[in-house]
Amino acid sequence: MNGKSKVRLGTLKRGTQARISGIQLQGFSSEWRTRLLEMGFLEGESVQVVHESPFGGDPIAVRIRGSMIALRRSEANAIEVVIE
């Protein structure tokens, strides 16, 4: 993670591998944040964008903690990542 800048998960292209550096609270409900945590979106976890929807590339499917989770790009932006 040497000095690489933080980006939002929702902006990543398919195939990108990244590591979660934090979850933003601003603009997102605390419930959403809890939900993400329950699904395993924790700081330090590695995450990869595996699929994009054929229609406008949204939603995306990411692999995390051995499962595949679909979420919309706008909401994936709650997750800050560092590209690996």
Partner: peptide, 9 residues
Amino acid sequence: SVLLMELPT
């Protein structure tokens, strides 16, 4: 709404 859905194997 928000979407958060598992895609099972």
